Amino acid sequence: MSIQHFRVALIPFFAAFCLPVFAHPETLVKVKDAEDQLGARVGYIELDLNSGKILESFRPEERFPMMSTFKVLLCGAVLSRVDAGQEQLGRRIHYSQNDLVEYSPVTEKHLTDGMTVRELCSAAITMSDNTAANLLLTTIGGPKELTAFLHNMGDHVTRLDRWEPELNEAIPNDERDTTMPAAMATTLRKLLTGELLTLASRQQLIDWMEADKVAGPLLRSALPAGWFIADKSGAGERGSRGIIAALGPDGKPSRIVVIYTTGSQATMDERNRQIAEIGASLIKHW
């Protein structure tokens, strides 16, 4: 067993022997301040990774656009098919120029040779490549099948209805392509620590998230040296922004954090800054 596999296998073990965790309302004060600064709703939840206990939450059962955070769930569904012998990570998928959609920095470079399922998941999570996500959605049967996968996990809230990039439209009061912070946090925890996926697939999923290259201005910008984070960000229309993450000190994750916002007129930089400040408060009061 590799060191990384050992780390993920012992996530519940280490967490069980940690000192009790206590909620700190100071972080919620910052979440509410972010709402004021952005002029928009902000949803927040913080779960203990081992027990699933909610440590703090704000608007945990209000719907927010998922945006690209759905790509972690998508690759979880792909990995479940791999575990069941219905898919192979090494299978190569070929596609054409007509398949390319807006923001496809990886797939646009491989029109000639195609990409493997493993490479597509890596591109979808680490670079948020939209064509990679659409190609992977095709392998599982489309958005409705991802929703069905989530329902089978016990998540009857999260739903995907459309493809990239239309799913980022974020129309107010439109339930399409949305989740709730509580539902997303619980589902992410199941994917990373539950028995739904094999140990190898859980490790692969967290490795992809740990290698995320496009979430630097968010929670990662607030992390002290030595902290662990595996995350996936999302951005959408109407001032929408979000991030889902597993993080913790001492090089291992111990909490799940989900943050979503929508309806702001603020710039992307300002949305990023507010999420980073929430992260800084979380870490300060850990």
Rank of each mutant, 00 (worst) to 15 (best):
L120Y: 02
E210N: 10
E277F: 08
M67W: 01
G52W: 05
G236N: 06
S104Y: 03
I275S: 01
S68L: 00
E102A: 13
R271G: 08
M184R: 00
H94M: 14
N98C: 07
G142K: 04
I278P: 00
A9P: 14
G236D: 04
I125E: 01
L282M: 14
R189C: 12
L282V: 13
I243E: 03
H5G: 07
G114H: 05
L247R: 01
Y44W: 03
R238Y: 13
D212N: 07
E277G: 10
V29T: 12
H5T: 10
G154P: 04
L137Q: 05
T267S: 13
A9E: 06
L282Y: 03
E61P: 01
K109N: 12
K284I: 11
G226R: 10
A34P: 02
D113T: 14
L100C: 06
D155R: 00
M153H: 10
V106G: 06
R255F: 02
Q274W: 15
A246D: 03
S233L: 02
K252E: 14
Q97E: 15
G248D: 02
A133N: 02
F58E: 05
G90K: 15
T262G: 05
G76H: 02
L79G: 02
R63E: 06
T126D: 07
K213D: 03
I259T: 03
Q88T: 13
T116K: 06
R81L: 09
D212P: 04
L89F: 08
V78H: 03
G43N: 00
A225I: 13
L111P: 07
I125G: 01
L137C: 06
W163I: 12
T126C: 11
A235R: 02
L199A: 12
D48P: 02
R271Y: 03
L10V: 12
P249I: 06
S68M: 00
P143L: 04
T193P: 01
G142T: 07
V72N: 01
H285M: 09
A15E: 04
P60E: 14
S104C: 07
L223C: 13
V258D: 01
D250G: 13
T187Q: 05
A222R: 15
C18K: 02
R118N: 15
E35W: 01
P224W: 03
A183Y: 10
K232D: 00
P253E: 06
F70E: 02
E119G: 10
A185G: 14
E145F: 10
T116G: 04
H5L: 09
L19D: 10
L120C: 06
P60V: 12
G194Y: 08
L73P: 09
T139W: 06
S240N: 07
P249G: 05
V214C: 06
I283F: 11
Y103C: 05
N50P: 14
Q4F: 10
L136E: 01
S240K: 01
S68C: 01
F149S: 07
D212R: 04
N98H: 14
F6G: 06
W208C: 03
L135N: 03
P25A: 06
M184F: 09
P249N: 08
D207V: 11
M67L: 09
L196A: 15
F64S: 01
E87K: 03
F64Y: 06
L196N: 15
A182I: 15
H94E: 11
N173R: 14
R255M: 05
S201C: 07
E270G: 08
E108H: 11
A211P: 04
Y103R: 04
N168M: 06
L136I: 09
